[in-house]
Amino acid sequence: MKKLTVFSMLFIGLCIAGGGMLGLYLIELKEPGRSGGLFLPIVVGNLLGIGTTFIVWLIQKKRHGNVPTVDERTLQNLKKFYAAALYLVLFGSGGILIILFLMDVQTIEVGMLFIYMMVLFIVLGVGTMLAKRV
């Protein structure tokens, strides 16, 4: 396995674990004692995710040999996708705010913003995968 792939997987794993721990800390800060039992799912989920990615990588390598999965055209496609996604997110968020304003909504709950961010990350993640495969 290439060094960069290993480093990337470890970095992503650490970021996910770090985010999870930050979440646990915030829960403990707000409501002490409510974070119990969440530590294990964060660690196990993270390890399962990395393990699955590793297995998929091994299967792909066995099937396609030494053919790369990313090249100059893939990178160009990704650039185009992120450029389009940037406008979509900017104008989309602005549009949502205008609609909420017109609906006479005065405040937005922080929890809702977290959910919005989560949806954005999922949509961008799926979009990246699709843009990579085209």
Partner: peptide, 29 residues
């Protein structure tokens, strides 16, 4: 296409795109 992809270190999809005139390769490629 698979052999060419392996030799030139590009994806098979890129070869298809170039062959079908859907993508112009960079100067390097």
């Amino acid at each position: 296409q698979l052999q060419m992809a392996e030799d030139l270190q590009i994806t098979r999809q890129t070869i298809t795109a170039i062959e079908n005139h859907k993508y112009n390769p960079s100067l390097e490629l």
